[in-house]
Nucleic acid binder design. Structure first.
Length: 579
DNA sequence: TGGAGTGGGC
């Protein structure tokens, strides 16, 4: 039996198909499939390694198959995301000679596959089977899995009903409720579940804190994040690496890079994920050189970078215009670290070369990629074509994107803007009409700024805020100062509509980020940084205005747009006008 | 009984 137990250990830790086959031979030679249920484990291993044909062959060859054997097969399919195969196996299992009925483990695996596949009909069918089986009253894990599945497919009403009706709730149920509300855009409700979970006396665990940190990001209020940080300290969870990593990531996403760095420095022996999170923070904030230094230090301390580390490192190089460095790391990632570039890395490289004006080189890389280019890769090329006014290549990228993402309006807008920028107004209007015909609408630009424990939202030309008169007065004052002190002229080339120059100027002066900046100047004390979030990318004129404000008003501003952070101080931006 | 197993850091 010692032999079998060591074989089981080898199966558990096996990561190569070669070793797996060797182990399979050993089992065939020395023991039977039923010894220590080793056959079931081999089936699981083959599936884990992605060799489902071998798994199925072995499964059919096994002399005896009990419920656990079937569950091993179903669970293996589920982990690979093969929803159809899960159902096929379930049906075969129920029709088999022994007529096995699914138990809670079968349901958990199948529901997992439904979550992965975001599949509505199949999930409902499983819910029906679960109800029929009667496990719902006693198996909290199955209840939680169903709550999660309903939430992930957008049916919060059913999630809440299951949660309310269940008599077997546990901490996982509460944590799931927090997360699914957040995922459905209801961060405030997620926070309410977190508070209730505390109030009823649940002892919060790592997952609870990780969930609430994500909720904080969704709500976007720094004071709330600081409150949760306090709670983490009080609960003694600050020594937990996962939570500390989540916290540093949160501060970075809220524009507080210095706080991220403080949290990172307090982590004892940070692991690869913590190092990577800090690297990601430098990357999105545009501090390319700091990101590289951080990466070199990470390697120096013997921490192995993974494919995510390289995504952020390449993105840092791209955002900071460090072309040579980016190319160097793209090469070394496979040569020195044995990490083969994935789609994300190619997106970063196309972005890096495209932003620097090497459009043809970027296009060549796409053609030479060993895998099919994704929308991210083509999107990076399209963005670069927009910056450098390359209509011809832009059309090629856009056409591919229309195939890959037919329902994403941003690609149509981008192409239309490329046409507008080169004065091809007819083509621009044709593209916008095409977008309308498809029923796609353009997302409205809005900017958010925190003040007095509240997030204030502004849209273009917004007069809805009670302080609007003061805000507009401040905006006028800034414009006057910019004109008189810096000789600034509105960058109306950023208005891509075929209208008169004065109309263009009026449009650009009312952008949501400008209104938010004026509000920040009025409401936020001189010593504080003005932090603004924008859902779309910042426009060129607003970027210039933020630089001017930082100089004239002697203020520090941070603007997070849909892609990255911009830190404005003393008349310049951390992106060095390169974004 | 066991071997299969809900939420959860970059």
């Amino acid at each position: 039996m010692a032999n079998v137990s060591s074989l089981i250990d080898s199966i558990t830790s096996c990561v190569s198909i070669f070793k797996c086959r060797l182990l399979h031979c050993k089992v065939v030679k020395n023991v039977s499939y039923r010894h220590g249920f080793i056959g079931d484990q081999l089936v699981g291993l083959y599936l884990r390694l992605g060799h489902e044909v071998c798994a199925e062959k072995l499964f059919d060859e096994m002399p005896e198959r009990d419920l656990v054997s079937w569950n091993s097969l179903i669970s293996g399919y589920s982990k690979r995301g093969y929803l159809g195969k899960c159902f096929e196996a379930l049906s075969r299992m129920m029709r088999s000679e022994m007529c096995f009925r699914p138990n809670e483990v079968t349901f958990l695996s199948i529901i997992s596959a439904c979550v992965y596949g975001r599949s509505r009909e199949e999930g409902q069918c499983v819910h029906g089977l679960v109800m029929k089986s009667g496990v719902l009253d006693e198996e909290v894990k199955v209840v939680n899995a169903l709550i999660n599945w309903y939430g992930k497919t957008g049916d919060l009403t059913s999630s809440c009903k299951l949660f309310e009706d269940s008599s077997v709730k546990n901490l996982v149920s509460w944590n799931t409720m927090i997360l699914i509300h957040l995922l459905n855009g209801l961060a405030e409700e997620g926070l309410a579940y977190f508070s209730m979970s505390r109030r009823i006396g649940n002892t919060l665990d790592q997952a609870a804190f990780l969930a609430v940190l994500r909720v904080c990001e969704g709500i976007g209020v720094v004071k709330l994040a600081q409150g949760i940080h306090g709670l983490i300290l009080l609960s003694g969870f600050n020594a937990n690496k996962c939570i500390a990593t989540g916290l540093l990531d949160l501060y970075a996403k809220l524009g507080r890079l210095e706080d991220s760095s403080t949290v990172f420095l307090e982590i004892k022996c940070p692991d690869s994920l913590a190092w990577t999170a800090m690297l990601a923070a430098y990357a999105t904030h545009g501090y390319g050189k700091d990101a590289i230094k951080h990466f070199e230090l990470m390697v120096h301390y013997g921490i192995s970078p993974d494919h995510v580390t390289f995504t952020h490192l390449l993105s840092a190089c791209s955002h900071a215009g460090l072309v040579e460095e980016g190319k160097h790391y793209f090469e070394t990632m496979s040569k020195r670290y044995g990490i083969e570039p994935r789609l994300d890395h190619y997106s970063c490289m196309v972005d890096l070369m495209g932003r620097s004006g090497f459009l043809q080189e970027a296009y060549r890389l796409i053609k030479e990629m060993p895998m099919e280019a994704s929308s991210g890769v083509w999107g990076a090329l399209l963005g670069a074509c927009r910056v450098y006014g390359n209509t011809q290549l832009g059309v090629k990228a856009a056409e591919r994107l229309f195939e890959l993402e037919p329902c994403d309006g941003r690609n149509y807008i981008m192409l239309s803007n490329i046409y507008s920028a080169s004065g091809q107004w007819k083509d621009a209007s044709r593209t916008r009409n095409l977008m309308k015909q498809k029923g796609l609408v353009r997302g409205k630009g809005c900017s958010y700024i925190e003040h007095g424990n509240k997030i204030h939202k502004f849209v273009v030309g917004d007069w809805s805020h009670p302080e609007s008169e003061k805000i507009q007065k401040k905006l006028k004052e800034i414009r006057k100062k910019m004109k008189n002190e810096l000789g600034y002229k509105s960058r109306t080339e950023f208005v891509l509509h075929d209208v008169d120059e004065d109309v263009k100027e009026e449009m650009i002066n009312q952008h949501s980020e400008k209104i938010a900046m004026a509000f920040g100047l009025l409401m936020i004390s001189q010593i504080e940084t003005i932090i603004i979030r924008k859902n779309l990318r910042i426009c060129g004129d607003c970027h210039e205005t933020a630089k001017a404000i930082s100089l004239i008003e002697k203020r520090r501003l941070v603007i997070r747009d849909s892609k990255r952070f911009h830190h404005f101080s003393q008349g310049s931006c951390s992106c060095r006008d390169y974004w």
